[in-house]
Write a protein that binds this DNA or RNA. Structure first.
Lengths: 210, 210
DNA sequence: ACCTTCATGATACGCCTGTATCATGAAGGT
DNA sequence: ACCTTCATGATACAGGCGTATCATGAAGGT
């Protein structure tokens, strides 16, 4: 066989190019040609590795989700080894609020895809339900465990707290990206939320840390 | 002067047509021609009333915000006259979760515009900060008042609760629209949240001091 | 040495887009 | 009656889009 190239790598490179282009111009402005230019390859190559635009978009979405999933797990692993539940939850919200460029890009792209998925159910059925659902389960498990350990008041319902936390952080992310909230303020709101979830006594007094 | 037409009305009609078209095909698929067809007028008329596409989009966004604002105030007015704060907050979340077609459309379009605004700060600077900010202030005032009346525990911070509620409902709306949550479940999560905000003692569980 | 297959370039095609132009009813002011 | 202005129609134009086609290096199997 003739010279063979690492297709996976090439596809990943092109997906990254799409992400960069979309972060700059918006996903709506992404074209096969602009992706090719951003990746430094010819239009033909983009066609070659992804048949058509739908395939490219789908692949980029998967690529994005995979990247974010890895990032979140890395952040979790970086925590001191037996990290209390609250610290892990805090790590989650800190990761979810777009403060640095990478998370900003992620949130922008994810929301852009979400909007597309709202009118094109075919696109990304997997990413949009199974992706966040895994995250939700992860969080719910975390909270259930914490509740058993006494780290979380027993009346908190992990099956509600998990989607609540997910929805809240996503909403805050959007507020940040549209310029309505600074990332500092969004983070403060998220932390206020975490405090409320973990503190038994919500009545007055500054939240105690422990 | 020759025959004159109500420009405001025409513009509103065309904006409605845009909203319908976008609700069906997605905002990204909206074109001058598709809007004209949906409104049952010629392409020329859309140009006539809105110079260019940017103007049309901007007007549609304003139109949308105005409609939603009115809808929310109507819902508020429909409440029994001296409605307790909690009931008004509940009305808000019930209005915000997309369950019927109209609120589904609103959420879809609003999010679509939000995504555009993320890479095009010029578009809709007003709608995206001043719009929700008014809502936030409205909510914050409501909560402040409730706290003074004893309807809300004193340690709740309206300046945090308001953006938290806003972000939460928006996030839940997105989850519903992407098919990750049913509207029933989203509403349940939102109500769980409202319960937590208003109840001094977290329900049903043992621990608690007051 | 040759042939097959992979990888890539160049380019063309038809469609749809936003926008511009020209024309023409319709109707009140004079 | 006429003219001006508003409102609308028909159509053209240039550009960008996704996609398809044809050609051609590059390299291992035989």
């Amino acid at each position: 066989m003739p010279r063979t190239v690492d297709h996976g790598q090439r596809r990943a490179d092109i997906c990254d190019a799409l992400v960069r282009a979309a972060a700059r111009d918006g996903l709506h402005a992404v074209t096969m040609r602009s992706v090719a230019a951003e990746a430094g390859v010819s239009l033909r190559l983009v066609q070659y590795y992804f048949e058509n635009k739908g395939g490219l978009m789908h692949a980029a979405l998967l690529h994005l989700e995979e990247r974010s999933h890895r990032r979140w797990n890395e952040r979790l692993a970086a925590l001191p080894s037996p990290a209390p539940a609250r610290a892990r939850v805090h790590a989650f919200v800190a990761e979810a609020i777009p403060d640095d460029e990478e998370s900003r890009v992620f949130h922008l792209l994810w929301t852009s895809f979400a909007v597309l998925a709202m009118t094109d159910p075919a696109l990304a059925e997997q990413p949009f339900v199974s992706g966040p659902e895994r995250l939700e389960r992860q969080l719910a498990d975390l909270l259930t465990e914490a509740r058993a350990d006494g780290g979380l008041p027993t009346d908190r319902d992990p099956a509600m707290e998990a989607p609540r936390l997910l929805a809240l952080t996503h909403g805050l992310g959007t507020d940040v990206l549209t310029g309505r909230l600074t990332s500092d303020r969004a983070l403060a709101v998220a932390e206020y939320h975490v405090d409320r979830v973990f503190d038994t006594r919500s009545t007055e007094g500054p939240p105690h840390i422990s």
